[in-house]
Amino acid sequence: MGQFLQHLVNTLILGGTYALLGIGLTLIFGIMRVVNFTHGELYAFGAYAVFALSMLLGANFFLALVLALLGGMALGALIEIVLLRPMRGADIDTTMLVMIGAWIIMQNLEMLTWGGVAKAVVTPFPEVPLVIGSVSVSYLRVFVLVMALVLIAATYFLINRTKLGKAMRATFQDADTAALMGVSINRIYTATFAIGSGLAAAAGALLGPVFLAFPTMGDLAALKSFAIVILGGLGSITGATIGGFILAFVEELGAGYVSSGYRDAMGFVIIILVLMFRPTGLFARAERIG
């Protein structure tokens, strides 16, 4: 029982960051119809940004987190303007090839900048864990969960309660009509890509200190984001949030009770099963955003 409770707590913590990754990817896909292969590199960017700012430049750890998020958004906006804007109207496979090219470039730039040796971030949180009954968890991980929930809530607020969010939802439903109504599609696309990228960078910035930052860390993160998004239905934010927690749950229990080696396989098995039996995802009865 104690072991199961421990797995549940781990699920919550991992699920929070998974949800962030999923929401970022699903926003971009839902609104722009772009399968974003650079998502994992934005995640790695977040982790390296925190490392560079807090470990090399000596910045405050919390400030570093905020700057990593903003940096991720800026980088996302840049990718959108340089690579995707000229590709409007191209089919989904073609943009995918461009994004794969961008992914390779970004990953190898990280390799050149930081080298192949993994980087560790030392945080202000104590190594002594918080113990409640049979469950034990580090303060850092609790902080990561809280921050992830704050960001998820902020994204919901942005989509559902702001003017930008309204324009994003209109673009999602029908880009042509939205354009006729005076929505600047280019601006919406750039904002969407920036927000999605910022969320990925935030996930990396939060998980980087829990684990390590290394150049290929984005690969698995990107693939898992795909799994989360498929699980929740492409384009559904609620789906991605729930999908994130489901993936974390399945991974934790799989690793704890089946085999730790197959932890990372769980997500992919889920993808294949979901697409076989419910190709639109678990939560996308009618594809919608918000």
């Binding site: 072991q3 421990q6 797995h7 781990n10 991992l14 684990f211 390590l212 934790e252 690793a255 704890g256 730790s260 080696g261 932890r263």
Partner: peptide
């Protein structure tokens, strides 16, 4: 005798056991 993949970052399942 628990094993971990050389690239594994999350070893909590093995440690929990």
């Amino acid at each position: 005798v628990e094993t971990m993949d050389q690239a594994a970052q999350d070893i909590s399942a093995q440690l929990n056991k």
